[in-house]
Structures are given as structure tokens and as C-alpha cells.
Design a protein around this nucleic acid. Structure first.
Ligand SMILES: [Mn+2]
Ligand SMILES: [Mn+2]
Ligand SMILES: [Mn+2]
Ligand SMILES: [Mn+2]
Lengths: 219, 219
DNA sequence: AAATAAATTTAGACAAATCTAAAAATATTT
DNA sequence: AAATATTTTTAGATTTGTCTAAATTTATTT
């Protein structure tokens, strides 16, 4: 089934708030989406009619299985596009969200499947959030700070928690980016710095201050 | 200024029909866009109010300079996305148009600039249509059939006029695609076939039947 | 120059998505 | 348990984009 942009946005936000707060109510959804409670009520009725939502008036609401599946598909598209914008087009991380907010509503399933493959089936978006697969399954992969990484274990950079220009300059210099594979080679007790090998590139030293912002995963 | 999806689609079609037929009228625009004449009239008034169109009722209409610029920007986005879908994601050519019809309405200018650079600033979309630059200028580059290409001149593949699976199989085998650089080395009078070198790849022979479908450009 | 045909516009309706203001239901306080 | 506050829903309006059917204008024939 195909849903409107507004329907998709509502479903997605209900999902996010359900995850974060356990339950959602009309006012908090309206606040989050920068709309009015009356508009939310209108949409709730529509989503109920489309069987995306269990809803009894005045009693609250929550997504049906189909609603969840729909939400996860929008989230999947959002995060894949964010990864594309960041890794392929070189966008700064704070700019990708607004653009992905539009791109997530492009409807072609084949587009998303091909994009996913083109990107190398990434597990996390540039903010470190997991990317659901085409079944809506969220990868059960843990992220680690690079400082916690076992020595010599190959791991993939999934996110960086500081995206200042200074940090970007440094990462660029070392040819480290989201999706880079690296190995931790040695920890130095003297200053907490670590030596890492960036696969297909050189070995380098990262200060503790830098390293604590870099997160990786491995299987 | 930002325009709605419907406004952008109308502007784009008026531009196309203006180019092809010299002038556009209400009925032909309605037919082309699969809508009704009355709906077109409504939109014409809106576009006039936004100064995209010169329009006097019953007298006809045509785009203003600003209207043309807007149309060319939508066309630029459409064709860059088509190139992306075809060359980067490997879509068959007949599928890219429908998806680009949605993607062309994503509003970020920076996105398009970065996409253009990421794609290597292509001059033609996969159908051989020229891609306007960010000023709306259409490249004054001529395309040639590969059979007409001067010997040893390096040229870039811009389009292929037959996109059957059999043709695709053959091109894939020779590692020829949109954006490939090649040189024509020799013409054989016996059967009209040509020997070409695909840069960074091997030399190969193309039958006249294949070659007549391949178009290239050079500067 | 009428008469007729074709193209275009208007009038009025409808669906989607939103809003404000008022009413109704539920929750919290006294 | 009343009174009050909060939350949610309804009623009715607005904007955008579309439609059908009728009216109007322009073009083409007789
Ligand atoms: Mn969105
Ligand atoms: Mn994100
Ligand atoms: Mn379109
Ligand atoms: Mn095209």
C-alpha cells in the first residue's frame, strides 16, 4: 500500500515516541511534529481506517504490526539516504537530516534496495542509529568506542559523536570516515592515545580526545 | 522561491512543449499531463500570479525568463537523478524516468550541486538529453554516433538508443556504459564493424549493428 | 455574415491537510 | 465528591489541487 507524505511522517513519529516513551498521546505527538492536536486527531482517524493504528477515542493509540512495518520502512529509507548524503556526497552531518526528511518519501522499493546495495548494506546511519533491513529488522549489532575495541580486531566505523570542522579535518587527514575499516594496534598508557591501522591506508596515532568520539562495530 | 510539485510539473511541461512545438495551448498541455483543461487553466492563473508565466485569457501563454529558469532547474534535477539511477545504481533505462519524476522535486540546491560533482558533472542523461548547468545553460556539445567518431579521438559514451537486455548484455561484456571513455581504432569495410578501445579496459570489436546504437561526445 | 465547431474559461463541487474555537471527556486537586 | 485543570475531540473554516458541466470566446465552415 502507498501512503501520503503526511501519513508517513505521522506513522514515523508515532513509532519513535512509542519506542522512547512507551506510549504516545495526542498532545505530545502534535508538539513533536509542530502541528496542532486537532490535526493529529484527524490523522489518527485516517490511520485507523487504514489499519495502521489501534485507536479508541479518548483512550489512546498505538501502531498495529502493519503500522510498525510501515514506520520501519520509512526509517530505513531515511537512514539509508542520510548515509548516502554523508558518505557519498560528503555532506556535513547536521545537514543530512533535513534532506532525508524529503527523500524518505520517494516511493520506489527497487530504488531503496539498489541504494542499500550501492552503499554496501550499511548497518548504521551517520548519527550511529541502526538501519532496519527490508523486513524491518534492526541489526542486533553493538557499537563500541574505538578505545574499547579488542586489539587487531577489524571493525567498521559507524559514527562519530563530534562533527566539528576541526574533527572532520583530522579524520580526513587520516582518511577515516563512516564505513572505513580499521584495526586497533596498540594503546599507550602514557597519554591514553592509540595506534590504529586504517585498512587500505596508513597506520596512525589518535589522541584519546579524538578516539573517544569514534564508534565502530564488527560481527 | 519554492514551488509545489504540481507547479513544478506544469512549468516543466510548458517548457518542453514550448521547445518542441513553438507554442503551447491549454488542451495540449492537459493532454500531455493527463489532466483536464479546466485544471490547467486554474494552474495558469497561479503561475501568472507568481510571475512564471505571461498569460492573457483566451490569448495563450508562455514562460517568463524566470519561468524558463525554473523549468530548466527541474529538468536539470530530473536528468541528474536519471544519470545517478542508471550509472550508479544500475537501473535499466526504462525505469529511471518514473523515479526521477519524484526525485526532481527534492528541494535542496546543495544536494543537486553535490550530486552533480559526485557524478562527474555529466553532460547528458542516459537517454542522450543534455543536462542544464546550475545557471540553466544547456551544454553546446554535439553527440556523434560512435561510427562517425574520428579515429583515435577520445570520447565519452553519452547514450545508447537500444536498451534491450541483449544489448545490455553485450555492453556489459565489453565493459562499456554511460560515461565510459573510448577511442575508435579502426573501421572494417568488409562488414562495417569497428575496433574500439575502452579506456582502462580491453580493445574490442563491435558489429555495425551494435555500434550504430552507441552515441558519444568529446570537447 | 451566419452557423457551427473547437478551445478555453468559469462556476460550483470535492478530497486532503491543516487550522481556530468551542465542546466533551478525563484527570487532578481541593 | 465537587471543582478545576488538562487532554482530546468536534464543528466549521481555509488552502491547494483537482474534477464535471455549463458558459463564453475564438476559429472554421457554409
Ligand atoms: Mn519526512
Ligand atoms: Mn539519523
Ligand atoms: Mn515530477
Ligand atoms: Mn531522460
Amino acid at each position: 500500500m502507498n501512503f501520503s507524505i503526511s501519513e508517513e511522517n505521522h506513522i514515523k513519529w508515532i513509532y519513535h515516541l512509542q519506542q522512547k516513551k512507551g506510549l504516545v498521546n495526542t498532545n505530545s505527538l502534535a508538539a513533536e511534529m509542530q502541528t496542532k492536536a486537532a490535526s493529529v486527531t484527524d490523522m489518527l482517524k485516517k490511520l485507523k481506517a487504514k489499519k495502521l493504528l489501534q485507536y479508541e477515542k479518548y483512550k489512546g493509540f498505538k501502531l498495529t504490526e502493519m503500522g510498525k512495518k510501515t514506520a520501519l520502512n520509512v526509517i530505513r529509507k531515511h537512514r539509508l539516504w542520510e548515509y548516502f548524503l554523508s558518505v557519498k556526497l560528503g555532506f556535513e552531518w547536521e545537514k543530512v537530516h533535513a534532506i532525508a526528511e524529503e527523500l524518505e518519501h520517494i516511493s520506489s522499493d527497487e530504488l531503496i534496495q539498489r541504494l542499500d546495495d550501492f552503499l554496501g548494506n550499511p548497518s548504521f546511519d551517520p548519527h550511529g542509529d541502526p538501519i532496519p533491513d527490508s523486513f524491518g529488522k534492526i541489526p542486533a549489532i553493538k557499537q563500541y568506542n574505538v578505545l574499547q575495541l579488542p586489539l587487531n580486531k577489524k571493525a567498521v566505523v559507524s559514527s562519530v559523536s563530534n562533527q566539528s570542522p576541526e574533527m572532520l579535518e583530522m579524520l580526513k587527514h587520516h582518511k577515516i570516515g563512516i564505513g572505513s575499516t580499521l584495526q586497533s594496534l596498540k594503546h599507550f598508557a602514557f597519554d591514553g592515545s592509540i595506534e590504529i591501522k586504517v585498512l587500505k591506508n596508513a597506520t596512525c596515532i589518535l589522541s584519546e580526545q579524538v578516539a573517544k568520539n569514534i564508534f565502530v562495530y564488527y560481527d
